[in-house]
Write a protein that binds this DNA or RNA. Structure first.
Lengths: 201, 201
DNA sequence: GTCTATAAATGGATAGAC
DNA sequence: GTCTATCCATTTATAGAC
């Protein structure tokens, strides 16, 4: 039996939109109720208070982000191809407008909601790191790269790939990169990384 | 003639502390006046409103960050040494507790204060990028590295160096790295970067 | 410039009816 | 669960005296 939308869903949807747009402090329970088209009392019948509502919403967003990470085994192609493909996923997923909002809002509130900051890290970068670590260890085992510290190399690869455009977008200091700019960035990062870690003689 | 502290200085100092600790929304003009030990009316006699006060304070913080960037000519040592030294400066400066607060607060408010976000980028990462670009171009000219896109390589180097520990600290997902962890990270990043971009045959 | 006092509006949260 | 109406604390900003 299909219901159009429960009140709770309306509230969650409205709260998500407003929290992501304006952050925790600048979003009022009044505005959430208005956006959802319900009374404020109804909001409080579903969520104990503003903090709980925020934590619930943003916790869900972290899980959602986590779900976008790769979960298939890595194909046995050329390392450059695999890394470029992973890199493309990394940069595209963090540049999603909604992902930018989540990043900004979670970071802003992480001193007040420390569990949220940790949840974001664990669901996002940490998952991708684990995935990369497995692959780098395999490349080391196959004698293709020399990976002495897989975790560190994984993080450095991620930083090299995502930091430049991600940060510029977050601070409003540049336009989104074009496809060919992303392409160029990925090619350079992957070749630098692979050549830099190639097994020496 | 040395004055202890003007009221304006007291206000600025109090506002800076509170804004950096709690962000824009969670800091009230009342609390700023109280922290400064002046009346609220005095705050408003020096700053038109809360937005102006915030923009002034945070704009100053951006300039302050800019002032910590290197401005001396780069010594003609081994590239690895120079890059490691620059990398050490990068990572140490972004991990300063006050720099972490500035980063978080500016980013949080950059949708509302877009000029602030751009100012931060221009005073911080952009300055360091320019410095790195000059050096990478020189290394290319000297036939040491092959740098086809200096700006891109500079940003990727910065991302590789700073992203891992910077992000974990911001999200509260890890302890500050020890000296030896920083050392290891810098060594790996620099060697990956230099080997990866060495002039081929 | 600086203070005390207060205006005017908004915030989170609840009472009580249905 | 849901609504209308409201309480009470807090917020930004200003009035007016000194």
């Amino acid at each position: 039996m299909v219901k159009s939308s429960t009140k709770k869903e309306l509230i969650v949807s409205a709260a998500r939109k407003l929290f992501l747009e304006a952050g925790y402090g600048a979003t009022s329970m009044d505005s959430i109720a208005a956006e959802a088209g319900v009374s404020k009392r109804t909001v409080y019948s579903h969520f104990k208070n503003k903090e709980n509502l925020f934590a619930a919403i943003m916790g869900d967003m972290c899980d959602l982000i986590s779900g976008t990470n790769p979960n298939e085994p890595i194909p046995a192609n050329e390392p450059e191809q695999v890394l470029k493909q992973l890199g493309l996923h990394i940069i595209e997923s963090v540049m999603e407008p909604e992902a930018l909002d989540v990043f900004r809002v979670v970071l802003a509130e992480s001193p007040v909601f420390p569990e949220l900051g940790k949840a974001f890290w664990k669901a996002g970068p940490d998952v991708m790191k684990g995935f990369l670590v497995d692959y780098l260890v395999e490349l080391d085992r196959r004698g293709i790269l020399q990976i002495n510290n897989p975790e560190l190399s994984a993080f450095q690869f991620m930083g090299m790939i995502k930091w430049p455009y991600h940060m510029r977008l977050l601070f409003g200091a540049g336009k989104p990169p074009t496809k060919s700019e992303i392409e160029e960035s990925l090619d350079l990062a992957v070749s630098t990384f692979v050549n830099g870690l190639k097994l020496k003689k």
